[in-house]
Amino acid sequence: MTPDAGPREAALRVTNLHKAFGSLDVLRGVSLAAHEHDVIAVMGASGSGKSTLLRCINLLDIPDAGEVHVGGELIHMGFDRRGQRTPADPRQVDRIRTRLGMVFQRFNLWSHMTVLQNIVEAPIRVLGVPRRRAMEQADHLLRKVGLYDKRDDFPAYLSGGQEQRAAIARALAMEPEVLLLDEPTSALDPELVGEVLKVIDDLAAEGRTMLIVTHEIGFARAVSSRTIFLHQGMVSEQGPSRQVLDEPRSERFRQFLSGGDWGRSALTTPSQSGENESP
């Protein structure tokens, strides 16, 4: 599709996503759309369903209801023999996943492979990119995230910040249409956060389409075009980042933005975890 042919299809469209773990409703009807070059920050207290939202998008968790479109393509769902909702075509899921880059909170680098092997593994084995080209591309990405000199090291010998940068390079090597980042800095020591945010900042400047679950408010304001605030599995506020972050409408979001203990608020203040949404 050419850029100026009719209404542009969103790079990623999520419609009315529901997900429960047992009796715990984690997502209760979340919808969002990311267009090309959008950088969307997803915020919310722990337990608000941010990570589950990302995991449901690339089917690491199977949503109970709702639709996910990637580049206009709907991920078809069906039911297995026991009546569990499951992807109708596993091969479609694999294919869709190659178009969605995922960066995990705890990096999840393959520990038996070097940094370089981590990066070229999927392009070669899944996409069928010739080894030579994959290596060239990997070198390029490694320079970009500043890890060229660590290319032959095993993950266990990297710092958390280096591991996360390697994981970002691994995701980029697939040339994904949308990059999903699940709290990419929250497992890092404070002094290592900056180097990772810098890399993500560069990606945003390149015009990458990204969905970032983050707690870094300053970063979200500087980098993201839009911010979504999740509360109890629903989108409670959304809009252009500067507007939403500077003038939060709900008391809860205001508290979240100002509170130092946002990460634990759902656990430490029982009054906030009631069923009713207060205006």
Partner: peptide
């Protein structure tokens, strides 16, 4: 085998035998 490493493999489109051969079994 750490769950996260398997999820990372799934997230780049690996599954079935490829996932076993390249990630799960070597580990």
């Amino acid at each position: 085998v750490p769950r996260g490493e398997i999820e990372a493999a799934r997230s780049v489109g690996m599954s079935g035998l490829l996932l076993y051969r390249r990630i799960i079994l070597p580990k």
